[in-house]
Computed example of a mutant assay.
Amino acid sequence: MPVLDVHRDEEALTVALTAEFEAPPVRVWQVFADPRQLERWWGPPDWPATFDEHDFRVGGRATYYMTGPDGTRAHGWWQFTAIDEPRSLEFDDGFADQQGTPVPEPQPTHAVVTFAADGDRTRMTVRSAFTSLDALHQQARMGMEDGLRLAAGQIDAILKEQP
Rank of each mutant, 00 (worst) to 15 (best):
G94V: 03
Q98W: 02
E90Y: 01
P25E: 02
D120K: 14
T50G: 01
V28F: 02
D97I: 04
R141K: 13
R121H: 15
P104H: 12
L38D: 00
M142F: 13
T125L: 10
L17D: 06
P2L: 03
E10V: 14
A152D: 01
T72A: 14
A62K: 01
D118Y: 00
A33M: 02
K160M: 10
R141Q: 14
A129I: 01
D84H: 10
F21A: 05
P45K: 11
V113R: 08
R149M: 07
E22A: 15
A19V: 06
T114S: 12
G43W: 02
G71T: 08
E39K: 11
G94C: 02
P86W: 00
V113P: 13
Q37F: 00
T63L: 05
L17Y: 07
I158N: 07
M1F: 04
V31D: 02
P86I: 07
A157E: 13
P104M: 07
H110N: 12
Q107E: 15
R123N: 09
P45N: 10
A140R: 15
P2W: 00
R73V: 02
S132M: 08
P44K: 11
F51G: 02
E105C: 00
P2K: 08
T125K: 11
T101S: 12
G153E: 00
P104A: 14
A33R: 11
P69S: 13
P44I: 00
D92T: 14
D92N: 08
T131M: 09
M1D: 10
A62F: 00
A116I: 03
A49F: 09
R121S: 09
A116K: 15
A82S: 15
E161Q: 15
V113W: 12
G119L: 06
K160W: 03
L133K: 15
I83E: 05
R40V: 01
P45I: 05
D70Y: 00
T122Y: 07
R127F: 02
D52T: 12
F95V: 05
F91P: 04
D93F: 13
T50S: 07
W77R: 06
M144S: 05
I158D: 02
Q154S: 09
D120T: 13
P69R: 14
A16I: 01
T18V: 15
P48F: 02
L150V: 04
F130E: 01
M142C: 06
T14I: 08
T131L: 12
M1S: 15
L38R: 13
E53M: 09
T63I: 01
R27G: 05
V31E: 04
Q107Y: 00
W42L: 10
V126R: 03
T18D: 04
H7L: 11
T114N: 10
V26L: 09
E10Q: 13
Y64R: 07
G71Y: 06
I155C: 07
G147E: 06
D118W: 00
D52L: 13
A49S: 15
Q139T: 10
A16W: 00
L89V: 12
D146M: 13
L4W: 03
H75W: 15
R73L: 05
F51N: 12
L136C: 10
A16T: 15
A12Q: 11
H75P: 08
P86G: 10
P35G: 07
T81R: 12
Q37L: 15
E105K: 14
Q139E: 02
D55K: 04
W78T: 11
F32H: 14
Q79S: 12
D118L: 12
D97F: 05
G71Q: 09
Q139C: 11
G147T: 07
P45Q: 06
P2V: 01
S132H: 05
